[in-house]
Design a protein around this nucleic acid. Structure first.
Length: 113
DNA sequence: TGCTTGACATAAT
DNA sequence: CATTATGCCAAGC
């Protein structure tokens, strides 16, 4: 497999828990390819939607769904996120401070949420 | 082999 | 807060 980074990206995206979202840059970093945020989106685009990966949990740094070929897909993605209990702002953005996936099993040793 | 494109991110205006 | 400009690096042709 030449594009090994893409394989890693898929692996990270598959780890996004339900009710949470991750940014492209974050995924790239978790995948061990920090800096290739664009390749993350590119890899997901290559999936086409025929993949079992929760690609809909991947948004850009603005907490907004990125633009794609079909604007209908954007609505579709937001619909999937809303179905997971996520909240969208009036501008159609997510509150990353609340729904951002924190790949840390560690607890703040002082009351969690 | 080399140029262009891209489901992004960040800083500046 | 929204928009514009620049940087980054791999995939596609």
């Amino acid at each position: 497999m030449a594009s090994e980074i893409r394989t890693r990206i898929y692996d990270v995206v598959a780890r996004i828990p339900r009710g949470r979202v991750a940014t492209y840059g974050q995924i790239a970093e978790l995948a061990g390819v920090g800096g290739h945020a664009r390749q993350v989106g590119y890899a997901l685009h290559a999936l086409g939607g025929d993949s079992p990966l929760p690609w809909h949990r991947v948004v850009n740094a603005a907490g907004q769904v990125s633009r794609r070929d079909d604007p209908a897909d954007e609505v579709f993605q937001r619909a999937l996120l809303k179905a997971e209990g996520l909240r969208f702002s009036a501008a159609g953005r997510l509150d990353l401070g609340a729904v951002r996936w924190k790949p840390r099993s560690g607890r703040p040793h002082s009351s969690g949420a």
